[in-house]
Computed example of a mutant assay.
Amino acid sequence: MEPTDESPQLGDADVDREALAADGADLAALAEELGVQIDEQSAQGAPVDRWRVVKHHHSAGSILLGAPTDLENKSWRVAYVQTRAADAMIRVHPDVMPLRASRSERRRGLMLRWPETMTTRQVADDFFIDIVNAGHSRWIPDGDGFQAVGVFTEPGVTAFSFGWASSGGHRAVPLDPGDYARVPVTVNSATWATLEPGEHDLHAILTGLDLRTDRPLRLDVSAEQIARHRALSPRHSLQPTERRRMIDAQITQTRAMITAGASLTRIAEAIATAETDREAVTRITQLLDCGEDGAQSIYDSPLRELRAGNAPSLESRIAELTRLRDAL
């Protein structure tokens, strides 16, 4: 099985490359083979044939099905099955999903480079990164965006996790060899509430493509700089008790994301049939019994951050948050 980073994607979901080329079958026949029913309402307007299993998460008990909607197999409908559910059935997602190359292929030729103005030891109020086409041919986006997030770690630390929510902006643009696009690096405002003065490494990640800087930016963060960033946040000037409460909330939300990794297909099914964002969050809350804040963080998270394989990094994040809370 190839690494998920090298797997093609239907929308944002990683799928098995060989399964895409497999022979398809009638949806009804596939349902009979899997021993489940079809949610006929969700299947209205969907293809009746050419369906196949494109991903099977054995540990999570979930199956992702797909059927091309064109002769070139570039557009697909997908469906979800939660095999361990008492009412296990095939539920078809309402949207057509584009077949995309893997993240590894889509980011080929790109690199992240800190602008010269960012390489001093003084921390600026704003951070920027250059997305450079270091390849020999024109780079063209495939449904990707140019959204970069920043993560502070202790000097020399390279293992870290991060969460992000799409802003809907920073659309990717084609880049000829040698061209670059300079984009802002967004640091979560909650980071400044717990960051301590001193030397830190700033890592930049191009979300969606999972492209990271080869080297972090070593910065000497001052108390004054931290205070300025905290003042920009509606949660600035936090007292220790408020900071502990905030960190506890982050821990709870991170644990909810770990739980979500084992129920991702059921969550997708709940969201697909919800008529409003509010209803989707309510359904996640009921499904995972995780509280509304945890459900909202799950709903706002990209699918790849919720996959079960990210659990170890999320556990590390909980350990770091617990350390920060206990130090208050």
Rank of each mutant, 00 (worst) to 15 (best):
T265A: 02
D49I: 08
D176K: 09
V54K: 01
P184G: 08
A79I: 01
T120I: 09
Q44E: 15
A29D: 12
T241H: 14
D26S: 14
D142C: 07
Y80C: 04
R108H: 12
A22V: 04
T153S: 06
I131M: 05
T273W: 06
A28W: 00
E320I: 00
R84N: 02
D220F: 05
R108E: 13
T153K: 09
V221P: 01
R50K: 14
G45T: 12
R325F: 06
A28E: 03
L20H: 03
A43P: 07
A21I: 04
L324Y: 00
R212G: 08
R138C: 10
G198Q: 10
R228L: 11
V187A: 10
A29Y: 01
R212I: 14
E2D: 08
M111C: 11
P115Q: 03
D130K: 14
R107N: 06
R228C: 04
L264K: 13
V151D: 05
A85E: 10
I131E: 04
A46I: 13
W192Q: 01
D49E: 12
R255V: 00
I129L: 11
P234E: 07
T241G: 04
V96G: 00
P98M: 11
N133P: 01
P197G: 13
A260E: 05
V183F: 02
L209S: 11
I63D: 01
V183H: 04
P174V: 11
P94L: 06
I267G: 02
N310H: 07
D14G: 02
A295Q: 06
V123N: 00
V96E: 03
A272Y: 02
L288V: 00
D220A: 12
E292W: 00
S62W: 03
V123I: 10
D16V: 08
